[in-house]
Write a protein that binds this DNA or RNA. Structure first.
Length: 463
RNA sequence: GGCGACGUCGCCAAGUGGUAAGGCAAGGGUCUGCAAAACCCUCAUCAUGGGUCCGAAUCCCAUCGUCGCCUCCA
């Protein structure tokens, strides 16, 4: 397997620290608001990564954090007059539900800042002891970037190139403008914990370093997140962790591209948000996943009605190959005989694509070719016994993608009435009462039931 | 202004040296009472301009454009 490493800007062979085990840390959300489809994209990307690694036989230790101590949370809680921890708990619960609704596997560990405070303090203390950090007179503790000689290696910038303070005022207490806070002195009305530097709370980046150390150890295989986190978040995380341990931190840095809405990034601060909840009220979870699979995880993802419609149609096409055989006896047709060889070829082509930096779009192309083979075989009279193994393979490989490909469910109990209507319609068709037949079909369609006439009988499904 | 990524058919998009996967849309056909679904056929020389090479979408340079970061952000 090869995967693209942001650190080297190249694709590299994938080798784990420990054979058969992948330690993967993915930055989760700051929980102060409804999660949006951009968060969904990131979560889906790493869910697909995880599922594929597990399919390839790795035991994946997947950690995703919740940042539940932060300025935005505190501000919002104060505005609403609620407890910040109650607020963050609500959005943590919501996010967990969003992930479940999107068919995203829960991380094997989900640490929170508020429950990692002792480890954070120990880490900050360790950095102070090594002179990599210093307490300032105002009670803050800052990381000393000049002490880290390869600072900037992830984002490919040099300290001299950066214009700190160009837009915001540089904190006077800092030795160097790029120094960043590990620990912030408490302000009135904020959550605070006792520390060697007085009451305060963690800065933004330190929690991920501490949770990594606590959950996965000093070195990990994959560190993931959105590419908007490369600087400063991940850069600072590297600086903290490596200064503390003296060892290389993450072997591979993976970053997903930004979801694009109307040509720009969807983000809380821009206000152009579509929440996961709102999305799922209109579209199936598979649609969002399909959209992600059809692109490259590193590239911007175009999110609009047109691309969503295309994803939905693509799903229908995948499902078409899973429809049952129409023939009862085995066929000797050429198209049917081709199934076993095609099945074998599909699997290796799928693996080849996915092994190359999770090229899901390429792998999807392989599956669509296979769909055609399957449908042709069925049209040529393949029996269930002939068709089923190939369909099982398609199920398996789409399952690795995390696609459910389930048929829509309608109201319970409606099925027998639909069947009854189709019986009546079949009789009408026998009597060539086309107007009546079409009326039934059209009216059912309005009610969300698609009727398709086959050679011998009609089939139906919810649309 | 600096750094990074990128620019492939109407839309999404794979492909990183040997003459362009796939999906959606569109047009034509088979099937059908008519549809739908499925199947068959058609549909691009890869932003622009130079350069390297026997040969480039794929490497180099320049130009134009897009996106991300430099400030909270998946």
């Amino acid at each position: 397997m090869r995967l693209y490493n942001t650190l080297t800007r190249k694709k590299e062979d994938f080798e784990t620290l420990e054979a058969g085990v992948v330690k993967m840390y993915v930055c989760g959300p700051t929980v102060y608001n409804d999660a949006h489809v951009g968060h969904a994209m990131s979560a889906l990307v790493f869910d697909i990564v995880r599922r594929y690694l597990e399919f390839r036989g790795f035991n994946v230790r997947h950690v995703m954090n919740y940042t539940d101590v932060d300025d935005k949370i505190i501000n919002r809680a104060n505005q609403m007059g609620v407890d910040p921890f109650a607020l963050s708990q609500k959005y943590i619960d919501d996010f967990d539900q969003n992930l479940a609704d999107l068919n995203i596997l829960p991380a094997t560990a989900k640490p929170r800042v508020s429950k990692t405070i002792p480890q954070i303090i120990a880490l900050v203390q360790g950095l102070v002891d090594k002179a990599c950090a210093y307490p300032a007179a105002n009670g803050d503790v800052y990381f000393r970037v000049t002490r880290d000689d390869d600072y900037g290696k992830l984002s490919a910038r040099k300290l001299d190139d950066m214009q700190a303070g160009a837009r915001i005022e540089v904190e006077e207490q800092k030795e160097h403008p790029m120094d960043f806070a590990l620990w912030k002195a408490a302000k009135p009305g904020e959550p605070a914990w006792d520390s060697p530097w007085g009451k305060g709370r963690p800065g933004w980046h330190i929690e991920c370093s501490a949770m990594n150390l606590a959950e996965l150890g000093e070195q990990i295989d994959i560190h993931g997140g959105g590419n908007d986190l490369i600087f400063p978040h991940h850069e600072n995380e590297i600086a903290q962790t490596e200064s503390f341990t003296g060892k290389p931190f993450a072997r591979y840095w993976m970053h997903n591209g930004m979801l694009q809405l109307g040509g720009e990034k969807m983000s809380k601060s821009l206000g152009n948000i579509i929440s996961i909840k709102d999305f799922l009220a209109k579209r199936d979870a598979d649609v969002m996943r399909m959209l992600v699979l059809n692109g490259s995880y590193r590239a911007p993802l175009m999110f609009n009605e047109e691309t969503l419609d295309a994803a939905e149609k693509g799903l229908e096409r995948l499902k078409s190959a899973l429809r049952p055989a129409s023939a009862s006896a085995d066929s000797s047709a050429e198209a049917v005989a081709a199934l076993p060889a095609a099945s074998a070829a599909v699997k290796s082509a799928y693996l080849a694509a996915m092994d190359d930096d999770f090229n899901s779009a390429g792998a999807l192309g392989v599956l669509f070719d296979f769909v055609r083979v399957l449908n042709t075989a069925r049209d040529s009279g393949a029996s269930a016994a002939q068709l089923t193994p190939a369909q099982a393979l398609l199920r398996e490989l789409t399952g690795v993608f995390g696609l459910r490909l389930s048929e829509k469910q309608g109201q319970t109990g409606a099925e027998k009435f639909i069947e009854l209507l189709l019986e009546v319609r079949a009789e009408a068709r026998r009597q060539k009462q086309w107007a009546l037949s079409d009326l039934i079909r059209d009216r059912l369609k309005e009610l969300g039931v698609t009727v398709e006439d086959g050679k011998t009988s009609a089939t139906w499904r919810y649309l």
